[in-house]
């Protein structure tokens, strides 16, 4: 099966950016597209959540929360071993512990295109995974220092744009239920892919801009940004097997664990750890890991999930 057209849009954006083309989408459009995507993901998850809410789900959510705390610690250890200084290692680790909703949207499209079913309450896990890594990252950087303004930071984290949109969508979907939401359904059915395609075009342009900074940081960062998603995916997939998720669910959770944030975490880190170099994290998460996951990672994680299941895990 060839590349999904939405991925081609990403490659198109990447090429246009690398060629220093004049092509530039207005920032307001990027903003709009990401809002529509997050709301759509949230709504879809909410509708399904209303039908499947159970005690078992609560246990799974707790496990996913744990995953969100383990991943940044692991990333931090790898970064320290690669000789990054403490503050920068912590900031980058926070990005890798958190998730990218953009990558999630692509893996959803990927699964739908192949007709692979997955647990439809996954968006809940996206929301859960966004937060803990930020807190762990700050703790790793400075311990329980007094000068952290936790109240302000809390507002930044819990009331940030992406988490608000996801949770808002989830709640609206859950309250409204499947029947009432029908008129809005195109948001996550027929409209989803066109919006995702334009979003990925812009992401390609942005990622190409980040790639330029790679020269500055060299192979250590490149190595980390390629190794960490693989490590994350393996842990995510194993956890998914432990939770008894389906094949699709395993691949999706692996993808979530492999992805790195580039919206919520950079904003929070900028304020909480100003001494960390923001372009280090963004080059890694946006310039390398995001394209890697979109182009190679997602099919790979599906194979990993199939393999684990074949081994009877």
């Amino acid at each position: 099966m060839g590349l999904d057209p939405v991925v081609l849009f990403f490659i198109f954006g990447l090429c246009a950016g690398l060629l220093k083309s004049e092509l530039k989408l207005p920032p307001a459009l990027y903003e709009t597209l990401s809002i529509v995507l997050l709301l759509a993901i949230g709504l879809h998850g909410g509708v399904e959540l209303a039908e499947q809410a159970s005690l078992q789900l609560l246990g799974q959510a707790a496990l996913v929360l744990g995953l969100g705390m383990v991943l940044p610690v692991l990333a931090f250890a790898v970064l320290r071993a690669l000789n990054f200084d403490r503050v920068n290692a912590a900031a980058v680790a926070a990005h890798y512990g958190s998730v990218s909703a953009g990558t999630f949207a692509v893996v959803v499209a990927f699964m739908l295109a192949r007709g692979i079913e997955f647990e439809s309450y996954m968006p809940l896990f996206v929301a859960i995974l966004e937060i803990p890594a930020i807190l762990v990252g700050i703790l790793l950087a400075k311990g329980l220092a007094r000068d952290t303004d936790w109240r302000e930071l809390g507002r930044e984290i819990f009331l940030g744009k992406s988490i608000m949109l996801l949770l808002g969508g989830l709640i609206i979907g859950a309250v409204a239920g499947k029947e009432a939401i029908k008129p809005l359904e195109p948001l996550y059915t027929s409209m989803f892919k066109p919006v995702l395609a334009f979003f990925l075009l812009e992401m390609g342009l942005i990622a190409s801009g980040q790639l330029g900074a790679l020269k500055q940081f060299g192979l250590r960062l490149l190595g980390f940004a390629l190794l960490m998603p693989l490590l994350g995916a393996l842990i995510g997939a194993l956890l998914a097997r432990l939770m008894g998720l389906s094949l699709g669910g395993t691949a999706v959770l692996a993808t979530l664990a492999a992805s790195a944030s580039y919206i919520a975490v950079p904003a929070a880190m900028r304020l909480a750890l100003p001494a960390a170099n923001p372009s280090l994290s963004l080059t890694a998460s946006l310039g390398i890991t995001f394209p890697f996951n979109i182009l190679i990672g997602i099919p790979l994680y599906l194979m990993l999930a199939e393999q684990l299941i074949a081994w009877g895990l």
Partner: peptide, 9 residues
């Protein structure tokens, strides 16, 4: 500082 998107604003 291109202001192309959020973090570069």
């Amino acid at each position: 500082r291109s202001a192309g998107w959020d973090t570069e604003g």
